[in-house]
Write a protein that binds this DNA or RNA. Sequence first.
DNA 1: CAGGTCCAGATTTTT
DNA 2: TCTGGACCTG
Length: 672
Amino acid sequence: MSRIAVAALEDLNAEQRAAVEHGRAPLLVIAGAGTGKTKTLSHRVAHLVAQGADPSRILLLTFSRRAASEMIARVGRVMAGDVRLPWAGTFHAIGARLLRELAPAIGLDAEFTIHDRADSADLMGMVRHQLGLGGTAKRFPMKGTCLAIYSRAVNAEETIADALASAFPWCREWGVELKALSAAYVEAKQRQNVLDYDDLLWLWAEAMREPALAAEIGARFDHVLVDEYQDTNKLQARILLGLKPDGVGLTVVGDDAQSIYAFRAADVRNILDFPGTFSPPAKIVTLEQNYRSTAPILEASNAVMALAREGFTKCLRTARAAGGAPKLVSVRDEAGQAAYVAEQVLEARERGLELKQQAVLFRAADFSAPLELELARRDIPFVKFGGLKFLEAAHVKDFLAILRWAQNGGDRLAGFRTLQLVPGVGPARAARVLDVVDEHGAYGAVRNTAPPAGASEAWRALKEMLAALDAAVWPSDLDLVARWYQPVMDGRYDDARVRLGDIEQLQRIGATFGSRQSFLTELTLDPPNSTSDESGPALKDDDYLILSTIHSAKGQEWKSVFVLNVVDGCMPSDLGAGSTAELEEERRLLYVAMTRAKDDLHLITPQRFYHTQQGRGGDKHVYAARSRFLPSALLEKFEQIAWAPAEGAGLHSQRGALPQVDLAARARARFS
DNA sequence: CAGGTCCAGATTTTT
DNA sequence: TCTGGACCTG
């Protein structure tokens, strides 16, 4: 067994090996971009197992589900066999699992259902309405903002007032109301036996305050390993400390230069302060050997980070000397940008580079809209990550709401949504039904309520479905709901045919789960993330271009990478340019985008473009300046190109490396 | 009371 | 482009 481990150690460099072989004392691995972080972490797990650790006593916390399964696969490869790591997953998913188990001990009903972000916002909206905060003379923040504020306070362990001051200064005047709203929101959740994302962390952390519970949970795990530690927040740090107060058996891995989730209350201090939390301090291993990018790309990326205000100065090295400088491409506008990307992508494919090896990254999901049009026009297949989610489509929400209401009759939001699917039922009648659910259950409440005029047939169908659901054995629930919902959809949506495809997909996915409970939980905590347009299974085997927000691109790499809108106002986003901290995060975002590239990197700067958030003025053009993160001193690291679409057919004209400096535009942009 | 239409306003990134 | 609120009609 140790022979496997020894063999595997040989293709690690000295630092990686030090991290892998480190004992049980607390360990911090600072892993720069492309330095083999996943490899190191998975080798460490494999090594621990090879040394006799029990895989079911290893807790592996990753940022996303995808990262967890990748890690498991790699551990399996190193061990040359199947290794099951039953406790690998996100903080939220593991939290949900532990809370179901701990429920009786902490006064929680184990049958809780989980609200995703949209559901939580809707519930917040209901409470907001009940408190009469909707019709105020000066606009009260919208439900999504209210939720974000509440969420910030929970995750950063701040008061509402502090959360407002630090992250939502434009809502500061509503401090008192928002505090009352938060209190009412918490009560509503408790009454309905519903948890939101934040509860999964907060309740877990609170339970760990209780020494007996903390000891019992902590003792289950000999090793706790955390990936992407730079993106954890205060609550998550508190959970870890509760599990392993002395840090023994604790390993965290991350890169402060890639911390990009402060908006989710991630706190870089977690990783910076980690070593000093313990005595003696945690051992620090730094990985600086980059295996991903060519030297010119890495140099440019390092140069961008070198201008950062604070942080460990880490200097990544690479042995990949070959390759040209990254390109800084100036195009006329967003349409030109789209044309440039499409053309370059096709050209690269001609040279033999698969579309899958190329990716287009952007700051905000809607930056890619013009590109998506262009790609569609040229028949270039693509898959987009980030942005619109499958779960946000109304028909998907309807379908899941019905199941959720059946699962948890107290989930008022689910019931509210379900009931109003019946023609003739509006908020008032729905509320009347929901008021007697506690007494009679969902089915009973519907039975005891008079049907709306002219819809007795539809009302009876609902009643029958609910009765059937009470008796159903999973996964027959899915068919019952689908059969009832289909006519509803026909009456409601013009494109019912397309939406039906999504419902069928849900049925297929659902059938693979063991119970209604686990289906609903897993789907909320790990939603499929393609938009409905291209969710067709046919695309799976095809070659397609990747479009992704920079946030969703974390941890990934491609041979060729295009970054859109590297322009002040987009990067940094003019929304995130308020405080220094925000600005620094925007800088790291650019760094993350750049370091995804192995061989080719194109940063694109449209000269003139249409600002999407503005929307109202119609055809107002904004002149943009190159991102402030690329000051002129850095330009020597790039090959500058001014690109314009070809006039006639075919050939594209490269007009040499003429830097275009439009000072007038820049002057205007300063005040626009 | 339900449901339609009209208008105003909107702070990016995700578990 | 979408959401939420106001107002109107049956």
